[in-house]
Design a protein around this nucleic acid. Sequence first.
DNA 1: GTCAGTGCAAACTTTTTGCAACTAC
DNA 2: GTAGTTGCAAAAAGTTTGCACTGAC
Lengths: 162, 162
Amino acid sequence: METQNVKDTVRQIFTEYLNANGHRKTPERYAILDTIYSIDGHFDIDSLYSQMMDQENFRVSRATLYNTIILLINAHLVIKHQFGNSSQYEKSYNRDTHHHLICTQCGKVTELKNDVLQTAIESTKLNRFHLSHYSLYIYGLCAKCVRVNKKKKTSNNNKKEK
Amino acid sequence: METQNVKDTVRQIFTEYLNANGHRKTPERYAILDTIYSIDGHFDIDSLYSQMMDQENFRVSRATLYNTIILLINAHLVIKHQFGNSSQYEKSYNRDTHHHLICTQCGKVTELKNDVLQTAIESTKLNRFHLSHYSLYIYGLCAKCVRVNKKKKTSNNNKKEK
DNA sequence: GTCAGTGCAAACTTTTTGCAACTAC
DNA sequence: GTAGTTGCAAAAAGTTTGCACTGAC
């Protein structure tokens, strides 16, 4: 599906959600939705704020961003993650299910797509619990940081030998 | 393994970690470790602070709690979670690997033990990434909240019909 | 016209930091 | 003795809230 198509579809879904819940259809809300669906990967409130100011030239307050994000989460158009210090978000419509590799050293987040894993999680029987969505965070060292650590170790050993 | 045994073992592991990294073995650090290994399930800094004050009668500052927790995470004796607003922690030595069911309505966190799932995750091939640990968070509604919602829905329908 | 939604600033919460006092080594 | 640690308070960072104003309905 093309980007524009996706944007149209999610706008429609959002409209239905707003109608169904008696919320108003404000220009801010659609501008925020549009901006989010222009972003690939993760973002936090601050970078969304900058993006709207600089790229889209649309002025909204942070309070409105927080308010709207909650609506979008409820409409299943955005999902929320909590790695690092601030909450991270990402668009969720028309996206493949994926998992996250998080480097504990540099904080870099990489997406991992794996059908076997996905099936295993989704077919798990849950007692007395009604699944909505899930997040798998895999922590470790990215290739770059493994290299950095090896170098550091070598230079430390040299120091000790002196 | 008995609780006291576990406590002795983790104290020993912590000592080795502190020695290996040139950190001092202060009474605060051991008191914090001990308290953490008295807690079942998750805790945040605030509840750890209260627990040390009230139950253990040991006065430490929050700053020291934050500092020490980082050491314990590095020593693989504690793991950190980020559901809800504040960071949650739990002891990790001698604990079965488990996953988390998080109710999106009431925030209740339940542990889920599932070997099939665990094996599936651990046997996943990761390209250019060196795994350290992982967290699977499953979001949805707990049995209680499903019931609450059903009731609410019914009473809403009644309202509409009036 | 009405009330939900917005912007702004202040408040609040959680975590980090700077610095003087303390203490493990 | 001297550096690593601690406690305290202040600062920072992220998020929520109160309130007057605005605009969607």
